[in-house]
Write a protein that binds this DNA or RNA. Structure first.
Lengths: 340, 340
DNA sequence: CTGAAAGCGCTTACAG
DNA sequence: CTGAAAGCGCTTACAG
């Protein structure tokens, strides 16, 4: 046999009909096919190396067993990990995952979905605005890392807890003057981080917070950090929205002649490769991106089966490395609340 | 009409047969359908928002218009860029791309391909050993970033030129004692880099080269760099196989009290995010990963059309930043060839 | 417990 | 220049 065997070939080999093959191989034979026949079918299928034709099945069933993962970019290691987690779970259920990078600046108009829209059963969307998917009404969707108040089921990180833990850590080291190196990207997670940080700092007696916004790249973050470190009463701790921004903070510190962590503590968020590559290594909150993808795919699969999955929040974990240390007593002893 | 329109619906709306719709929409109507009829069909299709059902087309045609991209990991930003380049070109031809991360340690046995094998037309494999795809005899394949001597068409980077340019740059700065921080990963590109570096150094009169191997992570690279910098007559320039390894070299330098680039020059390879995040910023060779993906997909698409695409080499580009500088005269003036 | 038949939506010879 | 028909490989009522 030169070409791939079909269910008809299996039927012939097992001496049964095509329907019986379908029943047995689809696992729906209990009480409908005799065990002996079922065994014969399974044996024949294995012998011939039979694998069902997905196109035929899709056509018949009206579903493609393919879901689309929409991410801002695949170039950030974070989203690569989301994909891997999602694809792992999908594969266990016989689903494939097609990734679609959707850059922030692309509107629904120039959507890259034109083609694939037809060929998917559902959408997993990560770190997108709620209305970005407006063209997809009717397609089941699960939102990752975005506003849990949305209609669709969501899976997010507990960024609020993450920020709280960072502030606790820094406050415990004696820091009271905080700077927030904030992402200017309009995404739920960054809004949430900003709010959580402000709340956490407000809960520390005598603590202050100043904030500068920057794009998610090293150069821009450096400029913003420079501003943060410029004035009198400069922060003794810089809380960054993201590890990449921390790299900018490091550069600004060096430019100002500040040594980390002696003169300045810096924290990140995400714990990507960068965190361990920096010198000193970065204290940050580890966000399990692959678990985000896996949990999201799990929810989407449930949704496709008619269930109504609830929303979920995955905890981050503080990883203390070398970039945080005791607040230098008397460092930059200008205005701003004093403390012992 | 509540469900998606089919070609039959379009036919009815345009007052023609299904065959005519297929001919017109498939662009095969020149001289077979009158322009007026064709226009009517196109109009009806647009009005109804008709989009062909891919499953049905796949079943009929026996091809899925889906290709698989196999990469070692999607967590490295490099491979994310390869995917984006490949997916862009594929989309222009109505093809989808499914990514499959295939970790180095996974043998053909525990291949994740079990399921998707059936549903793809071709394979784009990046940075894999030639025999990794042995289970896929018969499926058209294009190899990326791997041995051009393979049977399959390949697209690679001109790593030899890249190494040569690095050595020229360093030699021009007066360096003669080179250290090679080499990747221990068994991939063509690293073997090629190693050979090219050795050749280039051999072409510099009076130059020497020592080598240490390490895994592609910061900590392991640091240890190897420490060994390289340990002995007498230590290298004045460290050539790293990869930007990540350079981060390890930086740490080793600091641990040894060497300042970059005053006491030690360091170069990377790839030019990923990390290169600009390090302090000082890294001199490295930029490898256009998205172009690799795009060129590879282009070749694969040709292959699927029956052409026989040739192999291709994409040039890298030296990006000089702050990590390289003049060799300190008299630095570590021990044995090893002397020079003015 | 098992089989014959219909049909998912397309494309492509084939007949007119 | 246009249409009727066949068939890709499945799954699922339906009949026995």
């Amino acid at each position: 046999m030169t070409s791939r065997p079909t269910s008809r070939d299996v039927a012939k080999a097992a001496g049964v009909s095509q329907s019986t093959v379908s029943l047995v191989l689809g696992g729906k034979w209990s009480g409908r096919v005799s065990p002996a026949t079922a065994a014969a079918v399974q044996d024949a299928a294995e012998r011939l190396g039979y694998r069902p034709n997905r196109a035929a099945r899709s056509l018949r069933l009206g579903s493609t067993r393919t879901v689309m993962l929409v991410v801002p970019t695949l170039t950030a290691p974070f989203f690569g990990a989301v994909y891997e987690g999602a694809a792992r779970v999908a594969a266990q259920h016989g689903f494939g995952v097609v990734a679609y990078p959707w850059p922030e600046h692309a509107g629904p108009a120039d959507s890259p979905f034109a083609a694939p829209h037809e060929a998917i059963d559902g959408i997993l969307a990560s770190s997108l605005a709620e209305d970005a998917l407006s063209g997809f009404a009717g397609t089941p969707v699960v939102m990752l890392d975005s506003d849990p108040a949305a209609e669709a089921p969501t899976v997010v990180f507990g960024v609020e807890d993450g920020m709280r833990v960072i502030v606790d850590h820094l406050a415990g080291l004696g820091h009271r003057r905080f700077g927030h190196l904030a992402s200017s990207i309009d995404q739920w997670t960054f809004h949430a981080r900003g709010r959580a940080l402000a709340d956490a700092v407000a809960a520390v007696p005598g603590a202050t917070l100043v904030r500068e916004d920057a794009a998610l790249d090293v150069a821009d973050a450096k400029d913003a950090a420079l501003r943060l470190l410029g004035g009198p009463g400069r922060p003794t701790a810089l809380v960054c929205d993201d590890d990449v921004m921390s790299a900018g903070a490091y550069k600004a510190a060096r430019a100002r002649g500040l040594e980390i962590p002696r003169d300045l503590s810096v924290t990140g968020f995400d714990d990507v490769l960068l965190a361990a590559a920096l010198e000193p290594e970065l204290t940050t909150v580890r966000l399990p991106a692959d678990e985000l993808g896996a949990a999201g795919m799990d929810a989407l699969l449930r949704l496709l089966e008619g269930e109504r999955p609830g929303s979920l929040s995955l905890p981050g974990e503080l990883v203390v490395r070398g970039s945080t240390g005791p607040a230098a007593v008397g460092a930059a002893p200008v205005h701003g609340p004093l403390h012992g």
